[in-house]
Simulated assay, not measured.
Amino acid sequence: MSILHTVNKSPFERNSLESCLKFATDDAAVLLFEDGIYAALAGTSVESEIAGALGKLKIYVLGPDLKARGFSEERVIEGISVVDYAGFVDLAAEHDKVQAWL
């Protein structure tokens, strides 16, 4: 069963991302949105954790939430795919289950 994990909390305020990465199985997908987008930014203290997870997980970030917080796609860690709202819907439809990490 394929699972799309969603994280909408900043990794600097909550441990939602850490828990997600700990329990996500190989070949699952992770979508970072709302304040979760901070985990997708290069040069942060969680970059190495995200880079390590890219070997087993597909990681996406919601582009409109990046822009709403003043960041461009150039700030995103290499290997993370930027999606729009339609891409978010496609990801949810492509997976058997969606797990929200709050």
Rank of each mutant, 00 (worst) to 15 (best):
D35V: 02
A42W: 12
E34T: 06
L17W: 13
S19D: 10
A40C: 07
D35W: 01
S45T: 05
L57Y: 07
K22A: 15
F71E: 01
G43T: 09
T44M: 07
D84P: 05
V83T: 08
E13V: 13
I77Y: 13
L66V: 06
F23L: 14
G79L: 04
S45M: 07
V46M: 03
D26E: 10
L17T: 15
S48F: 10
S48Y: 09
A51M: 03
I77F: 10
D65L: 05
L41N: 06
S45C: 04
S72V: 11
T44N: 11
V30L: 00
G70K: 06
R69C: 09
F33K: 05
N15M: 02
G43C: 08
T25A: 10
I77E: 12
E47Y: 03
A40Q: 10
I77M: 14
G63T: 04
E73D: 10
I50W: 01
E13C: 11
S45F: 02
L32A: 12
K22Q: 15
I50C: 03
E78M: 10
A86G: 11
D84Y: 05
D27E: 03
T44D: 06
G79E: 09
C20A: 11
G43A: 11
L66G: 03
K58A: 12
L62F: 03
A51F: 10
E49G: 04
Y60L: 00
S81I: 04
V83H: 08
D35Y: 01
S16R: 08
A39Q: 01
G63E: 06
Y85K: 08
Y85C: 10
C20H: 04
F33C: 05
Y38A: 11
L32K: 09
D26T: 11
Y38L: 15
I37L: 05
A53C: 01
E73N: 07
R14A: 15
G63V: 03
L41F: 07
G43E: 12
K58C: 12
G55K: 14
T25H: 04
L57R: 00
E74W: 02
R69T: 13
L21T: 13
A42C: 14
G70P: 12
E78H: 09
S81A: 06
S72T: 14
S16N: 15
V46A: 05
L66N: 00
S72M: 06
G36R: 02
A86I: 14
S19C: 10
L54W: 12
Y85T: 02
V76M: 02
L31F: 04
A86K: 14
I59W: 00
I50D: 05
A53D: 00
G70T: 02
I59F: 00
G43N: 09
V46P: 05
V46N: 09
A28P: 05
G70R: 09
Y85Q: 11
V61N: 01
I59T: 08
L57T: 01
L57V: 12
S16Y: 07
F23N: 15
R14N: 15
E74R: 04
I37W: 00
E47S: 05
L54M: 11
A40M: 04
E34Q: 08
I59L: 08
K22G: 15
L41V: 06
V30N: 00
L54N: 12
E74N: 13
K67T: 12
L21D: 14
I59Q: 00
A68M: 02
A39M: 01
V30I: 01
G52S: 13
E74H: 07
S48I: 08
